[in-house]
């Protein structure tokens, strides 16, 4: 009886000890290098340029012409953007063809972000998003909103798109803005209606040339 009691006590003690202790961390877990406002301005600028490339898809889809369930897939195979975007079109709350739709959704699949190559010879930035568009077929316009993430190397940025207005055949967004946050720094990118956008972080303002990515502090 005494032996059994001793063994039980030891097992209880062992269980208590196993449950309660943990080793210190030994592997380095350094914070990422601090980003400057200008670093985030550059990143948000590249993101804005990618948005300009992608946005027309919801209005000017030119892929498969017939999809009874309203679902399509568009493949980007440009040097700067690569990967698939999933699309869904509807008219009057029912699935429809893209050419008659008054509403669309665009998103990247799970584990299948778009790869952006903003720097020649650089590494891919991974873009995941879910956007919605309200489409006016008669006027040939759409207004886009939504959110997503952009993985820039080891950094993970988040963005939201609000009221991004595009026109069929137009080269540049007619209006709208995007907020872009990385490492606690938030940039607001406002599309000026031409080939420029204005980026603001705190009280610093830059002008972004959407044609070539040049950033000029104002």
């Amino acid at each position: 009886m005494r032996k059994i009691f001793t063994i039980l006590m030891m097992l209880l003690l062992a269980g208590w000890l196993l449950a309660g202790c943990s080793s210190e961390e030994t592997a380095p877990n350094d914070p990422l290098p601090e980003l400057t406002n200008e670093d985030v301005a550059h990143q948000s600028g590249y993101m804005a340029m990618a948005l300009v490339e992608m946005a027309p898809v919801s209005l000017e889809f030119s892929g498969k012409a017939d999809a009874s369930d309203g679902r399509y897939q568009y493949t980007f195979a440009d040097p700067e953007i690569q990967g698939d975007v999933q699309l869904y079109f509807e008219q009057g709350d029912a699935p429809s063809g893209y050419d008659v739709a008054d509403y669309s959704q665009a998103w990247t699949g799970d584990e299948a972000p778009l790869a952006l190559y903003p720097i020649e010879g650089g590494i891919a930035w991974l873009l995941a998003f879910s956007l919605e568009s309200v489409i006016d077929q008669g006027a040939g316009t759409a207004v886009i909103g939504g959110a997503g993430t952009l993985t820039v190397g080891n950094y993970e940025a988040a963005f939201t798109v609000v009221g991004l207005a595009i026109e069929r055949g137009g080269d540049w967004p007619a209006g709208g803005y995007m907020t872009f946050t990385n490492e606690g720094i938030t940039a607001t990118v406002t599309f000026d209606g031409d080939n420029t956008a204005t980026i603001e972080i705190g009280d610093i303002t830059w002008m972004l040339n959407l044609s070539n990515g040049t950033l000029t502090e104002l």
Binding site: C21, S22, S23, E24, E25, T26, A27, P28, N29, D30, P31, L32, P33, N154
Partner: peptide, 16 residues
């Protein structure tokens, strides 16, 4: 047997 901290299964080292 040493029981490692959970965070020891990955690392991030920064050289600035």
């Amino acid at each position: 047997g040493t029981y490692l901290n959970e965070s020891d299964q990955s690392f991030q080292k920064v050289i600035e």
